[in-house]
Every structure is written in structure tokens, then in C-alpha cells.
Amino acid sequence: MVELETFGEPRRRPTAATVVAYVLLTLGTVVMFFPFVWMLLSAFKPIREIFQLTLLPHTWTLDNFRQVLFQTAFPRWFLNSLVVAAISTVSVLFFCSLVGYTLTRLRFPGRDLVFLIILSTLMVPTEMLVIPWYVMSTQYGWVNTYWGLAFPGLIPAFGVFLMRQFFQTLPRDLFDAGRVDGVSEFGLFWRIGLPLVRPGLAALGIFNFVGNWNAFLWPLIIAKSASMRTVPVGVALFSGEASTAWNLIMAASALAIVPVLLVFFVFQRQIIEGVVLTGVKG
């Protein structure tokens, strides 16, 4: 087995093309980052200033954060979101890759049909599943529990699809060689397949985390007590009948996403680049 260098690091010295790339990326930054920065800066403004169209606050204040952290149950919402996201991420990483692997690397009758059935579950809007889910949850006592919050997202079809595509890029010989060496079927998946799709796995992890972080309708319905609310459900409380506390929404949004973005920033090498080993006989 040979370690192959991938497209990861360009060797060339800066050329005209690189300069163009920097210019384009910098221009794009304005478009991509401006709304985010505005949101972030708004979190430091008193409510009146939020409505004034200045980017920088005249008076910087931490009141919004103070209010969100100490006068609402935000820490609890955050914890709940974290628990749900953690539960589901573990399940998603394992099951989606296992199913994705099975659908590409194992031959069995009905493989395409199974894939299509799994994919088709993506095509029914979850909004229409909440009523049956809730009926089910009351029957099994899942209402107001972490399990109840998490179960719909444990094996998302999109994750299966993603991992299937990543396993497709791996050469078949690799697994046949493993089989000849007497590696068990689970071992082929766990020890040979999985390490090779780490970039996909990491991307799936972050997507799933963000998806859970923003899920609204189901967490709203399944959480009956205030102590089981997640961040998006809690933040919805800032919109009342007669007014919306945009200062608090901005502060809560900032508090909720900055950690996610930081995790992404710090671990992006692992998330995107991983260390890609493409084993080829040679």
C-alpha cells in the first residue's frame, strides 16, 4: 500500500492565477460575511440601535448577552441542543456510513431498490410526519425526553447518500484484497473503509450538527416542558404578538453559532481535508 499525495497542497509558487483567486475570494468574502458580521455586531447594540442602519454600534453593550444568559433559560436550551446533537451525531456517523458502505461495497439482491427506498424518505417533508410521530411518542412515552427529541434524525437518508457517494470513490480492489487476507466483513468496513472516507465523515458530522442545531418544528412539539426546549425553540420565544426582541435574537443566535463556527474553524483540516490515504497496489 502506498500513500498518495492528493490535490491538497499546491506546490506552485504564486502565479497570476493565484492572485486572481485571492481577489475573487476576497470580493466574495464581503457578500458572504457581511450579513453574518451585521448579525454579530447587532448583538452588541441596544434594541433602538438595532433598527438604525449603522454597522458599528454607537454604544457597545453586553446587556443583550447578559439578558439571554441570565434572564432566560438559554444555558439550558444550549445544553439540550448539545445533548441532542451529540446523540444524533454519534448515531449518524456510525449508521450512515455503515449503510452507505453496504450499498456500495457489498453485492446483494435489491441493492438499488434499498437505496431508492432510503433516498425516498428524504422526499416526504418532515412537517407532515410530526403528527404520526407525536402519536407514536405518546404511546411509547417519548414525549419530553432526549430520545424523543433525537429519534427522527438518527439515520438521515442524506447522510446515507453522502457516505454512499464517498465509498463509491474508493477502489474495489482494496476490499477484495482485504477479503483475501481474511478480514471480516465488518472489519472491511470498520478498518479499511471508514478511515478512507474521513473527509466525508467529518463533513457529515458538521452538517448533521448544524441541522440539529437549527431544527425547529419537531423539537417544539415534542418538548412539552420549558426545561426540554432547544435553542431554536427557545429563541422563538423572543418573538411575541406585538414585538420581536431582535436584540435578544441576535445575541442568542451569536451565542449559539459562534461555538459551531469555532469548532469548524479549528477542526476544518480534519473536517475537510482529513488525511486521505488512497491505497493502490503498486
Partner: peptide
């Protein structure tokens, strides 16, 4: 429940 999602809550529960 949040004002904006009150009917959803009722409809589904």
C-alpha cells in the same frame, strides 16, 4: 409555547 408556533403545537399534539 412560542406565539408564532402556537397553532402548529396544537394541530400536531
Amino acid at each position: 409555547f412560542p406565539y408564532n408556533a402556537y397553532q402548529q403545537q396544537v394541530a400536531a399534539s
